[in-house]
Design a protein around this nucleic acid. Structure first.
Lengths: 305, 305
DNA sequence: AACCCATTTTTGTCCAAGACAGAATTAGGA
DNA sequence: TCCTAATTCTGTCTTGGACAAAAATGGGTT
């Protein structure tokens, strides 16, 4: 790591920037060539050294591009203008009171209070509503709070850990009905978002499906091998906005080609929310309700046996 | 994705190979240049198209390199010779009976049986012994079984998920004593091994420490920012063998420099097990017992208040 | 205006071949 | 046997060019 802590002024090499911004080295280099930004310093060996402000601006750019802006039009705007654009994006609305209250505990670093608030919400709402309302809402509003600079990276880490604890706990406690399909649940390499996966698992468990969770980033070939081993009826994949739509569709298509026709393939998540052409034989789930309908349909179709 | 499903013969572009083997595009290209393998086909636009056997061999290579072999010496051996090397790696010993029994359930894909066996071990041994004996043993023997080809990638994924579920559940259920230090627990970017982190958290919880877990891969600057926010006494970092010793030591030293002297820094894990020179002001924990002594020492030193 | 198709622009990914620093190995000496 | 110095190995970074897929634009037609 190229950090110059003596001067309090950190410099990051291209690999660190790729890791922290999610923009590939190729993109960083080609933007520099085409648009003149980011124009990093160079070390004695002519290798790029990015400054912290450049990284911060790159993060803003990533955010805006993910939500529809074109790189060429915004790369050369300064940080203030970008923040302006982001705040235009950010909904004017305030978070609902229940969400705002929980968020406030997180911002204040009141760990126990935060955990208890989550647990109370779970008790009050039940697993299904807790996931689709409270957790989904928190995910969204934490994103907004992050954009506004009101939440730190470590707060997000803490949030992620506690939600994992609570969801895993609740999933295990769910009674297995046993009349649903056996669903293999995972994500493809590159997709690290665990909360989304756990939310899906919670909903599936609450609806009586029999879940086989493999965590994140299972290579496609290993998913294929797992299907006969665990005698799976459905393979469900989750894609967050961290993954591009084309990568998600390509992965789904490849997997579909490897699996027997009797195994269903379901895909969902932010990366697919705007997808139009879905590979044949893949079921696109745009919402948790879609998933519940898909489960219901599966039950009806397999009721004869 | 470049899949030619009509001929049953799939071809993968370089991005797909990077994703599925974990070998970067740069590595794939430079191996081809230097060693002549892998020498993929080319599409109409001269872009690389790898075959499935090439991918499989690349995976074997990755395995061997991760466990100490040098690329230049093994890249040009054929798949049979590589498998031979892999089986030589595996130790001759058998796993202890308790471990072997649990492992057998995993190999047979008996998910419920596997889970129940873990739970029973936890009940019988208590959290502390469960972690230091059963989980530590399973980690080791699953590694061996994987090298011997007796366990698949997806089995490991499933193992990881279930152990996470059980440990997180048990940690939460642990009564908070409140007379121990507040310990911030995480790993540095690049270190993804979650089980090790949870094992540490379990032991800390069982010994009455007050744990603030941030999950894996927290950037150093964010660890520094979290220390005052959560009023932490100790920062504990976990390093698996996936990380090099030098990277681990460099990270510890950088962090030590950023934190106030009143905050202790502890480090442990496989990457540090052979370390000699430890950065000043960092406590090296070579075992779980070391950690318990460190906790005890902290309690004594802070008993006056 | 709303819809559809063709053309143009934008944008991400891939390529080659060279360079170099840090890690790993070997050689040499105490 | 241990430690240090020289050498080899290996991963990552470099440039500038190329191209295809995606997105935007232009121009008709309904």
């Amino acid at each position: 790591m190229n950090t110059n802590s003596a001067q309090q002024e950190a410099l990051y090499n291209i690999a660190a920037v790729e890791r922290d911004t999610g923009l590939s080295k190729d993109i960083l280099r080609v933007w520099e060539r085409r648009y003149g930004f980011p124009k990093p310093e160079r070390d004695h060996n002519d290798e790029r050294l990015y400054t912290l402000p450049q990284m911060e601006k790159l993060r803003l750019l990533r955010l805006l591009i993910d939500s529809g802006h074109r790189p060429g039009k915004i790369v050369n705007q300064d940080a203030a203008e970008l923040s302006q654009l982001i705040s235009e994006q950010a909904s004017e609305k305030e978070a609902p009171a229940e969400i705002a209250a929980i968020l406030d505990l997180l911002v204040r670093h009141d760990i126990d209070g935060f955990r208890n608030a989550l647990l109370q919400a779970l008790m009050k709402q039940g697993l299904l509503r807790f996931v689709t309302e409270t957790v989904a809402g928190l995910n969204h509003w934490i994103g907004e709070a992050w954009m506004a600079g009101r939440i730190a990276v470590f707060d997000e880490h803490l949030y992620s850990e506690h939600v994992q604890n609570i969801l895993r706990n609740a999933i295990v406690a769910q009674p297995g009905l046993g009349n649903g399909p056996r669903v293999l649940l995972t994500s493809l390499p590159g997709e690290k978002h665990r909360i989304g996966l756990l939310m899906v698992e919670a909903v599936l468990a609450a609806e009586g499906a029999n879940c086989v969770a493999l965590g994140t980033e299972t290579p496609i070939i290993d998913i294929k091998n797992a299907v006969p081993a665990y005698q799976v009826d459905v393979v469900a994949l989750s894609f967050s906005s961290a993954m591009t739509q084309s990568a998600a569709l390509a992965g789904l298509e490849e997997l579909r080609g490897l699996l027997p026709q009797t195994t269903e393939v379901w895909g969902g998540g932010a990366a697919l929310s705007r997808a139009r052409k879905i590979p044949q034989g893949v079921l696109l789930l745009r919402s948790f309700d879609d998933m519940r309908y898909a489960l219901e349909r599966w039950r009806v179709e397999h009721a004869r046996s």
